[in-house]
C-alpha cells in the first residue's frame, strides 16, 4: 500500500464504523455477531483495493457490502436451523460423528450456493431427482407440471450449477 493509505483508512473507519455497527445491530440480535460482520465489511472493502477517496457514496457502498454479508450469514443460519430440524425427523445420521456433521453441513452450504437463484419448482425438481432419485413422472405429479416441464427444470438447474462453477473457477 502507498503511504497515506493507512491513515486514510483509519479516518474512513472512524467515520463509518458507528452507523454500520448500528445497521448490523438492527438486523441481528447478537451484539458479537453484529461487531464481527461490521469488521468483516471493512475487511471486504480493503480487500477490494479500491481507492477510498474515490468512492462516491461510501455509505451506499458499505451498505451493499454489509447486506451481502448479512445475506450469507442468514443463509448459513437457515441451513443450520433446517439441519437441526431435519435431525428431529430423520434417523439417518444418528450415529454420525461431529466431523461428519460438520462436513455434511459444509457440503449442503456449497450446494445451496449453487442453487440459490433457481425458481422454486426447478430447485425442487432437481433435488427430488438428484438427491432422492425420484422418477420424472412422479416429480411431475408432485409439482403439478408436465414431464416435459420436469425435464426443462432439470436442465435449467444443471445449467445454473455449471454456470456457478464456471464463474467460481475463473
Amino acid at each position: 500500500m502507498q503511504n497515506g493509505v493507512p491513515s486514510l483508512f483509519s479516518d474512513f473507519y472512524r467515520q463509518h464504523h458507528g452507523w454500520l455497527k448500528r445497521f448490523m445491530s438492527r438486523h441481528l440480535s447478537c451484539q458479537h455477531t453484529a461487531e464481527d460482520l461490521t469488521q468483516d465489511s471493512f475487511i471486504r472493502l480493503i480487500s477490494r483495493r479500491e481507492n477510498l477517496s474515490q468512492i462516491d457514496s461510501p455509505r451506499a457502498y458499505l451498505t451493499t457490502i454489509a447486506k451481502g454479508l448479512l445475506a450469507n450469514y442468514w443463509r448459513r443460519q437457515d441451513i443450520e436451523q433446517a439441519y437441526l430440524e431435519a435431525q428431529k425427523h430423520h434417523t439417518e445420521l444418528e450415529s454420525a460423528s461431529a466431523e461428519e456433521h460438520y462436513e455434511l453441513l459444509e457440503r449442503l452450504y456449497q450446494l445451496d450456493l449453487m442453487l440459490k437463484n433457481l425458481p422454486p419448482k426447478a430447485r425442487q425438481a432437481f433435488l427430488m431427482s438428484r438427491i432422492q432419485g425420484v422418477r420424472y413422472q412422479d416429480i411431475a405429479l408432485e409439482l403439478e407440471v408436465s414431464e416435459r416441464m420436469v425435464k426443462k427444470y432439470i436442465a435449467q438447474a444443471m445449467l445454473q450449477c455449471l454456470t456457478v462453477q464456471t464463474e467460481a473457477s475463473v
Partner: peptide, 27 residues
C-alpha cells in the same frame, strides 16, 4: 464438468439433505 456437478449430489444422506435444501429454498 456435468459429471462433477452431479457427483456432488450423490452419496448424501437422502432424507436429511433433501429436507435441509428444500426447506432453505422456501425460507
Amino acid at each position: 464438468q456435468v459429471e462433477r456437478v452431479d457427483r456432488q449430489y450423490q452419496n448424501l444422506p437422502k432424507q436429511h439433505s433433501y429436507h435441509v435444501l428444500h426447506q432453505t429454498g422456501r425460507s
